[in-house]
């Protein structure tokens, strides 16, 4: 008896109990090299075509002239100004969409009557391209910033709400049960359990919402000419300045890629890693 209790004290943990460290994927420089080579090739061919004047410059500007336009645009701050205006509209509309979308999604995911009533409307309205809200928005808000912000908002609001709802519904029932056992109720249940538990879905919705918002902003700015990047695109058309059009398109692609891949990519990876969604079963 005595010796038995002694051996118990001495038990050491087997190796299995050590922390599992997931090795990071090594960076494949070759992949990046291939990518880089491809883009250099594309620009090179483009420059060649422009050099040989296959098409006149107002149809196809040379990459050099596009680069020049970009350079001068940043130097005289006209492009920066355009980016600033567009980003301001985007951030305001998108932020409101995140807040209201997450709230609506939580409500839809938790209240069955809401899901049956409002939920069907949300799904229906989601099919509406958000730019179609522009005429109504102009009549409601007038010819000003608010109309465009509304279009941006409508672009991302519903997709964020739908993703949030899906996230809430897919929370493992044991999480909710366990929260109840641990005395987590009311607002604490939403803030400390439901919201973080559905965060991966919310981020997916935000990513989707961002791309919808970005597209509707551009469409809105082009239709309803009032500064911003879309306006610069239209300006390029009006002035027959193809390199300005190309330059603005380059900027739009660059912003889209930075936000999509860098910001959302990293956030998504971090969240999914912590939530244990990236870990393969051994």
């Amino acid at each position: 008896m005595e010796s038995e209790s002694l051996t118990v004290q001495k038990i050491t943990l087997p190796k299995k109990e050590q922390v599992v460290v997931h090795p990071r994927k090594p960076i494949h420089w070759k992949d990046y090299l291939v990518k880089f080579g491809f883009y250099v090739g594309v620009v090179g061919i483009w420059e060649l075509i422009a050099l040989f004047h296959v098409w006149p410059p107002y149809i196809l500007p040379s990459p050099v002239s596009v680069a020049q336009t970009l350079y001068y645009g940043f130097e005289d701050k006209s492009l920066l100004f355009g980016i600033g205006i567009s980003m301001e509209r985007l951030i305001i509309g998108y932020s409101i969409a995140i807040v209201l979308g997450v709230l609506l999604g939580l409500a839809l995911g938790r209240v069955r009557y809401l899901e049956q009533s409002v939920g069907s409307a949300v799904l229906g309205l989601q099919t509406l391209p958000s730019i179609t809200w522009l005429p109504a928005a102009i009549l409601w808000f007038g010819l000003n910033q608010a109309a465009i912000i509304f279009v941006v908002f409508m672009g991302s609001f519903l997709s964020i709400a739908i993703s949030t709802e899906a996230g809430v519904k897919h929370i493992p029932p044991l999480f909710i049960k366990n929260a109840g056992i641990l005395g987590i109720k009311g607002w604490r249940l939403y803030w400390e359990v439901i919201l973080p538990a559905s965060l991966p879905s919310i981020i997916t919705g935000m990513k989707l919402g961002w791309s919808f918002a970005w597209r509707s902003l551009m469409a809105g700015e082009m239709l309803f000419v009032n500064l911003g990047l879309g306006y610069l695109l239209q300006l390029g058309r009006d002035l027959n300045d193809m390199s300005l059009i190309f330059a603005v398109m380059v900027i739009i692609v660059a912003i889209g890629m930075i936000v999509d891949h860098l910001i959302f990519g990293l956030v998504e990876k971090a969240v999914k890693g912590r939530w244990g969604l990236l870990v393969e079963e051994h």
């Binding site: 044991l174 999480f175 366990n178 987590i184 973080p196 538990a197």
Partner: peptide, 27 residues
């Protein structure tokens, strides 16, 4: 009456200490 399930049901967004603290908050 606290229940322990077959699964540990730890909240993945909290570290181990906070997983214990979240219940103590209710206390």
């Amino acid at each position: 009456r606290i229940v322990m399930f077959q699964e540990s049901v730890l909240f993945p967004w909290l570290n181990v200490r906070n997983n214990i603290e979240i219940g103590l908050k209710s206390r």
